[in-house]
Computed example of a mutant assay.
Amino acid sequence: FPRLPLMMLLLLLTIAFPWEIIGGKEARPHSRPYMAFVSIETGINQRRKCGGFLIREDVVVTAAHCNCNLGNISVLLGAHNVKKEREWGRQKIWVRRRIPHPEFNDETGENDIMLLQLAQEARLSDQVQLIPLPRYGDKVKPRSVCSVAGWGLTSVIPGMDSNVLMEVDLEVMEDRVCSRRFPNKYKPGTMLCAGDQRGRKSSFKGDSGGPLVCGTVAQGIVSFGPKDASPPEVYTRVSQFIPWIKATMEHLQALDPLEFSSCP
């Protein structure tokens, strides 16, 4: 049985590195109709992916670190299996403009939020819906159970990403937990701390930009986590950016609808 040692090795790697959505499950198809699959061109025949969420028919929110250096960005709405091209209700829309927060810091992860203006409005349906945003200054209480979803890696083993939407429940933690874990990066005012106390559940690479949903509201954005594969993870605190989001969307309405922009 020559394959047995490899199978055992994969099992050991899975057990040793819990920072992955192994503790999650496949989402019920279209139960999260606000989810957006963000595809970013990074070079010739090269792409990276992120998550996002629809807040207006023509605006998707994602993480600023999902921005690219060249090429185009598209979003896929209404999808469950992103490889299933004939899936009912899916809409692929190109991005007209990307607007990362002007004070985004790639080194510290501060202000990790970006708006994507779509080239055309999405058609709302059972498969495609908007998600509510919190009020400015809203706080999520520690120990609140929230959820995160995405098409990112399901294992630390390269290539073990998911074609179907996966979801996992996480617990909001005290700010001091992330302040200790990330002493030079975590900013309680604009970041949220969440994870699994037992270290078996997490968002992971490819889930960046997706929403941390508490109740029915998008309270966080998947931002960054520790490199040693242990919780907690850090999420952008959406409630602190409500004024910027509203002002930016108002400005978008006044822009030339035929203008397209590419990555800087």
Score class of each variant (00 low, 15 high):
V38C: 07
V38R: 09
V38A: 08
S39F: 07
E41N: 09
T42C: 12
G43K: 08
I44Q: 08
I44M: 08
Q46D: 11
R47N: 09
K49S: 11
K49V: 12
K49W: 10
K49M: 12
C50N: 08
C50T: 10
C50F: 03
C50A: 11
G51A: 08
G51Y: 02
G52K: 00
G52M: 00
G52V: 00
F53D: 00
F53M: 05
L54R: 01
L54M: 11
I55P: 03
I55D: 00
R56A: 13
E57I: 13
V60T: 13
V60E: 12
T62N: 07
T62G: 07
T62E: 03
A63L: 04
A64N: 07
C66F: 03
N67G: 14
N67C: 10
C68L: 14
C68P: 04
N69P: 04
N69L: 15
L70W: 11
L70T: 15
N72C: 11
I73W: 01
S74E: 07
L76V: 05
A79R: 01
K83L: 14
K83F: 08
K83P: 02
K84S: 06
K84D: 05
R86C: 07
R86T: 13
E87Q: 12
E87V: 02
W88T: 10
W88H: 07
W88R: 12
W88M: 08
G89A: 05
R90W: 03
